[in-house]
């Protein structure tokens, strides 16, 4: 247990120190929001209507571009071999890595969401659904992304390949997450979307560690 804690603490520390990607992820997230607004034009009513889905898509893309680093950094400095050789249950290690990735990339995004929400004129009643759906859904993005990162870890560069592999698997999370973000608290769709989102993420929490561990083993032998 303490080993898993150490892995999580180490990954988060690495992400927030110099050379880590945490700040870049938030910057990218903000930029997607800006790009959407620039593309749509200064029609404030339209922007405010699509703000929720735009922020959800931005969070998804910002998570996606950082997936390649989950395992690659460890592979490059050799610590991945140690992780695979020494851990009794590689699947639990993978779960810890996914959690650390979430804490280092998605959590800053959720914290930055209100600022971007103001800029995109997000309706006041939409803040809570957006934040809650992001908080429940983004761990699923990290979990599924963890599998994709493990699959391509032995390849030299794989940003695009990861995006191709992972996007279809992200479809349910995007649909339920964005669906909850766009409905009012208390509306029947809101609860249903959140519950389905939670179920999808829990499902990923079981599938992802096993698949990631299998992929890592296949990549290192």
């Amino acid at each position: 247990m303490s080993a898993l804690g150490a892995i999580i603490a180490r990954d988060i520390r690495l992400a927030f120190r110099a050379g880590g990607g945490a700040a870049q992820g938030v910057t990218f997230f903000a930029l997607t929001g800006v790009m959407f607004a620039l593309a749509v034009g200064p029609d404030i009513a339209l922007i405010s209507k699509i703000a929720g889905p735009v922020l959800w898509t931005g969070a998804l893309l910002a998570t996606q571009i950082s997936l390649d680093q989950i395992w690659r950094a460890d592979r490059e400095d050799g610590s991945l071999d140690v992780l695979v050789e020494t851990s009794d249950m590689l699947a639990l290690t993978a779960l810890a890595k996914a959690f650390a990735h979430w804490a280092a990339t998605a959590l800053p995004l959720i914290i930055a969401t209100p600022i971007l929400g103001v800029m995109l004129n997000l309706p006041a009643e939409a803040y809570a659904p957006l934040a809650i759906s992001l908080a429940i859904g983004t761990p699923g993005l990290s979990l599924i992304g963890c599998i994709a990162g493990a699959l391509v870890v032995s390849l030299p560069r794989a940003h695009l390949l990861i995006a191709i592999i992972v996007s279809p698997l992200y479809v349910p999370i995007l649909i339920f997450g964005s669906g909850a973000a766009m409905s009012d608290v208390g509306a029947p769709q809101y609860g249903a979307n959140l519950m389905l989102l939670g179920a999808t993420v829990l499902f990923a929490a079981i599938l992802s560690p096993l698949a990631s561990a299998a992929a890592l083993r296949s990549n290192l032998d």
Binding site: I147, L151, I165, P168, L169, L207, A211, A214, A215, S218, N219
Partner: peptide
């Protein structure tokens, strides 16, 4: 092996 994992996950 890796493609098999992806196929099963998919």
């Amino acid at each position: 092996r890796l493609a098999a994992i992806l196929a099963i996950v998919g």
